[in-house]
Design a protein around this nucleic acid. Structure first.
Lengths: 339, 339
DNA sequence: TTTGTGGATTTGAACGTTCAAACCGCCAGG
DNA sequence: CCTGGCGGTTTGAACGTTCAAATCCACAAA
């Protein structure tokens, strides 16, 4: 037997068997499933009952081959080191699978690998094998080569993260800047007048947006803002020791907020509304394990994935292309670290 | 157009076109791909060149329909709350996709949802639709209903985590007890004579194994061991205040180790080899963000997923069933929190 | 009575591939 | 010279479904 091909599972019921059992033809069973309105109610009921009875489900391969619809969405997993995965990925994927499931779609994972050294090749391979109806891309950068590539291929796709102006219709993102502005307002309302900010690389659009939102809102409210270029415990400690030290820190991620906790304590200060207030981003489980618990920004994962899947399927249906992406609000979760 | 079916992508090259271009028959192209040894070297080269030239790849649906091999592995994602995902899942999935890719397989995610309220129904649905060659199950419990179910269905499957004695051949797991024993030896070598242990629910087999490994090794070395039933900062603080306090704590996960950090500091003590030593489990990114960095146990994700995929494909090939599961060693990563 | 008409159902074909069997040349052996 | 065998290749069929067209039937309109 050729490499790895396993013997086809015998005994799976086919549409023909259902048809015979229900005393109708193939096509009527097919119609009962795909276009019930074309079937006389009485017949429909009989066929449906038989289907349930025999536990019939259409063979997805046969269905795909004939109809062209794969009922599957491809997700290009980020190429992080498995030992240092994207903190968001697990939750995002679960929500994506759920959202796809709501629409009767499955999610197929893929990554660059063996025959497909880079992301572009991996995409080509998946598309050439006609395994998916569309693609979901995440961690989208400015000028992302993957976006241009899939757009050129003509495959339906959608991105979590803003795409360039050439593909305005294909993205869903959270309002990173607005979320950070809400953080600033929250801290200002607690009386903080000088606030520090910690972010990661500005090359990451979402990080750039958070920083921009932070700075804009601080200026608007007339607060004094200071940003840490290369976040580390040492850098934060230096700020805490300096003159006119911040009384609050907003971080671009929960892990970065942890650096602030460490620095604050190393300086003999206290994290919290009465000491140095701290906020994070992502609302990871870490937040609840810190003392005091960390205020953070929760991403509306279900709304995000729901919008992604919706946009993707609209493209397949040939709906009129929307003219803009979808921006969703992220919710501030206030905990002991700030109020 | 019926719900969500998108127009089949036209223009994809077929095997027939390749055959014509190379001046051979369908089947010879097929052989060039699936059984190259049957094709004369000269012909093989010509066909291969044409394939590359036209960018041909077989339509996976057609291939599956005819041959019965789906070249796809199903992964049942745990039903965690997306806001509190399994800390391991992201890294595990990436490694799984890689391992599957090495064998020319893809990974299809699925979860209970819409028409399939529970895990068992979700499995049935996937299997009935003949979408996968086999299943990977994770977070396996003792007496796991899913295991019995897939075994009864006759679908190839493999579990990350020990299955019951009825299916000895189908699991891959790490040596949780041995890993924890290594932690104890490490701490003992650093001079610790009284060690505390924090774990989560004993219903989780991996947690039970870690605790057992801890206790066994502590007894073997004649150490004094104390376990915290309901881990929390308060519980650890109580221990630290009590008589004969532990000088080290081993935790069943990195997040639990964080509770120890908090407790130690709240008691005015210091984490580290000179104060209270602490170790975690999973080696999450958190470890490197703590001060001092957290000693932890790294799971050999690539080895795990490689073994999982290997075992799974062996079943499809009808290899002789192995008589035992695979137990892999997890590696201790020593950092500042303990040495 | 005949002729449409439209809904319900059936029939034949096709999707792109691999399986199984047939075919073709070539060479060795009788 | 014929026969058999074998490597290489082609041909016909089949996988299970949906599409497209044909058929059937009941009923209304001419």
């Amino acid at each position: 037997m050729p490499e790895g091909a396993h013997r086809p599972r015998r005994g799976a019921t086919t549409i023909e068997e259902v048809a015979r059992a229900a005393g109708v033809s193939r096509q009527t069973v097919s119609n009962a499933l795909n276009a019930p309105h074309r079937v006389r109610p009485e017949t429909l009921e009989r066929v449906t009952a038989t289907i349930r009875e025999l536990g019939y489900q259409p063979d997805q391969s046969a269905r795909s081959l004939r109809s062209g619809a794969r009922r599957t969405i491809g997700y290009l997993t980020p190429v992080d080191d498995p030992n240092d995965p994207n903190p968001l990925m697990a939750g995002f994927l679960e929500a994506l699978v759920d959202a796809a499931g709501e629409q009767g779609r499955r999610v197929l994972l893929f990554r660059p690998g063996r025959g497909a050294p880079d992301a572009l090749a991996a995409i080509d391979e998946l598309v050439a094998a006609r395994q998916v109806d569309g693609l979901v891309l995440a961690d989208v950068l400015h000028q992302d080569a993957r976006i241009d590539h899939v757009a050129r291929l003509g495959v339906p796709f959608v991105a979590f993260g803003r795409t360039g102006p050439a593909q305005p219709q294909h993205w869903v993102d959270i309002a990173n800047d607005a979320a950070m502005a809400a953080v600033v307002r929250h801290l200002a309302a607690r009386g903080h007048r000088r606030i520090g900010y910690l972010g990661a690389s500005e090359d990451l659009p979402w990080m750039a947006a958070r920083r921009a939102g932070f700075l804009a809102e601080a200026r608007r409210l007339g607060l004094s803002a200071v940003t840490v270029a290369h976040p580390s415990v040492t850098a934060v400690r230096a700020l805490l020791r300096g003159p006119d030290r911040p009384t609050a820190f907003a971080a671009g991620s929960d892990l970065l907020a942890l650096d602030v906790y460490e620095a604050v304590r190393a300086e003999g200060l206290e994290v919290g509304p009465r000491g140095i207030a701290v906020t994070g981003f992502h609302n990871t489980p870490l937040c609840r394990h810190l003392h005091p618990p960390l205020t953070s920004v929760r991403l509306p994962l279900r709304a995000i994935t729901g919008a992604l899947v919706g946009r993707l399927l609209d493209q397949g249906r040939g709906e009129a292309a929307p003219t803009a992406g979808v921006e969703l609000a992220a919710e501030l979760v206030v905990r002991g670290s700030s109020g």
